[in-house]
Design a protein around this nucleic acid. Structure first.
Length: 494
RNA sequence: GUCUCCAUCGUCUAGUGGUUAGGACAUCGGGUUUUCAUCCCGGCAACGGGGGUUCAAUUCCCCCUGGAGAUGCCA
């Protein structure tokens, strides 16, 4: 039988790490099994669903280069794949359950339910949830309510006796006593929309889903879903509950742990292949040594057996490492293209760069490539090449174990050497500078550091002479001159 | 509170009824380097506790502990 899996997010916010991991595992599994990957949008929460969220979903999957075989925009034999377009279907099936005596209309108001819940909590009652009040309404009462056109919801009749078991590929059999299943969950809301449970079960059945791969937070509702399949008289699919992705503190990953929206990672300059690779490694592994996987490899190597059961903590540092590794694998041209948007956004490069501007930019790629963790790092790294630098504290020029006076001498000597040597080889100039340093009884750094700070504005920078060349030799000399004046001033005043 | 699930270095993980328990990130130290980074070398670091089963348990079983999730007209 053909494997059919789905990713079924609800568009109530931006795609986050956890969701994407679920999407990816489903996708990889489908590809590895030569099956179908289906996308379904579960927008049954009218108040929280939004168009932007749907757009973010599409953007995210496109960015990751994950294509669905059936779903919105693309269609398929079991559409529509957007739940808000299937409302009638859910109503019909819900009514079917009522007709079969498996479900019933409940006319309780939210006020009554709230009061009930409050009272249960206050009295520390062992009984949780709905009291099944409307399941034993008399026909007269029902008739009365209907006549009043009282709004109602449809609730599933959960058996009080017995227990329900479902099989999980990873976890094995999971059993829950029916009395512990949240009593009589709502299937159809008073606005006529289905709840997750109803729509999800109906669609998975109608779309011939074979394996439900979703996060472990759904385990508790597994038995409920089985009960629903039984009520309909349908065969439930296979289950595979994926370990959750946690934050540093072991709690469910959320905004307070840092960025969780894929969009944020994308904007900061994480590469899709790095994010995909890393995210795939939390909760799954191939062997004891392989850590780099292309999408294609994941699509062929992925297997359920290698999925871990324990939840995993999302490690931003390891993601950074992956990203740096992937950045360094790019060619200069590729990286330039990836970096360009950040350069433009910082106004370092115009929207329509001239050939010289582009060439100049291209020439600095080697200077930053092995220093970038995320693409956006480039902005601060090359700022000194595109904007005037501000150094107002003379002590910043002074290397460790060196005095201000020595530093002044050093940089003056450096200026003297560099002035007029624009056309000579960098190696030659560097040689002269280090000789000079030794002559003055300084470490080589004692002369290079002041130059570096003068030219780049920072003690940490890309390679010095490469930077000077990209900046322009003259301009570098001017900056050195300016630095000399600043240090002189400080020496005289201090 | 109740129910369910989970448990190897700080983190992600490999692994086995008998191993010096392996790798990676992080971290620490060293080397290369005019800074930073890259790169190379090395160190620290784990089977939660208690009972069983067994000649032998990190591995199998039970209990405890710890953690997580669920208990919504949200998904």
């Amino acid at each position: 039988m053909e494997v059919r899996v789905r990713y079924a997010p609800s568009p109530t916010g931006n795609q986050h790490i956890g969701g994407v991991r679920t999407a990816l595992f489903n996708y990889f599994f489908a590809r590895a099994m030569n099956g179908k990957f289906i996308l379904r949008i579960e927008d049954t929460d009218q108040t929280r669903s939004s168009e932007e969220s749907v757009k973010d979903l599409y953007d995210t999957l496109a960015w990751l280069d994950v294509e669905w075989d059936e779903g919105p925009e693309k269609g398929g034999p079991y559409g529509p794949y957007i739940q808000s377009e299937r409302i009638e279907l859910y109503r019909t099936y819900a009514q079917q359950l009522v007709d079969k005596g498996k479900a019933y209309r409940c006319y309780c108001t939210s006020e009554r339910l709230d009061a009930l819940r409050e009272q249960q909590i206050a009295s520390k009652s062992k009984v949780q949830g709905y009291d099944r009040h409307c399941s034993h309404l008399s026909p007269q009462q029902i008739e009365q309510y209907e006549k009043e056109k009282r709004p109602y919801v449809i609730r599933l009749k959960v058996p009080v006796e017995g227990k329900t078991t479902f099989h999980d590929v990873l976890m094995g059999d999971i059993t829950r006593k029916n009395k512990d299943v949240s009593p009589d969950p709502i299937l159809l809301k008073s606005d006529g929309y289905p709840t997750y449970h109803l729509a999800n079960v109906i669609d998975d059945h109608l779309m011939h889903i074979t394996h439900i791969m979703r996060a472990q937070e759904w385990i508790p509702s597994g038995p409920l879903h089985i009960l629903l399949y039984e009520a309909f008289g349908w065969e439930p699919p296979m289950y595979c509950h994926l370990p959750m992705v946690m934050g540093k503190d072991g709690q469910k990953l959320s905004k307070r742990h840092g960025s969780t929206a894929v969009k944020d990672f994308r904007e900061k300059g994480y590469l899709p292949e790095a994010l995909m690779n890393y995210v795939s490694m939390v909760g799954w592994s191939y062997d004891d040594k392989t850590e780099f996987f292309t999408k294609e490899q994941l699509c062929s190597l992925f297997s359920l057996e290698k999925i871990n059961k324990a939840p995993g903590i999302f490690d931003y540092k390891k993601l950074d490492w992956y990203n740096g590794m992937y950045i360094r694998e790019k060619s200069d041209e590729q990286l330039a293209q990836l970096l360009l948007p950040y350069m433009k956004k910082a106004s370092f490069i115009p929207e329509e760069p001239s050939s010289e501007e582009y060439q100049r930019f291209l020439s600095l790629i080697p200077l930053v490539k092995e220093r970038l963790k995320v693409l956006s790092d480039v902005v601060e790294m090359v700022r000194f090449l595109y904007e005037d630098i501000e150094v107002d504290d003379a002590t910043l020029f002074v290397p460790k174990k060196q005095t201000l006076a020595q530093t002044l001498e050093a940089i003056q000597a450096a200026y003297a050497i560099m002035d007029g040597r624009e056309d000579e080889e960098d190696e030659t100039i560097e040689g002269l500078l280090s000789e000079k340093a030794k002559e003055m009884g300084l470490k080589v750094n004692g002369i290079f550091m002041p130059i570096r700070v003068a030219v780049t504005g920072s003690a940490v920078s890309p390679p010095l002479f490469d930077s000077i060349r990209v900046l322009g030799y003259d301009k570098a000399l001017q900056r050195i001159e300016k630095a000399i004046m600043l240090i002189e001033n400080e020496v005289n005043n201090g």
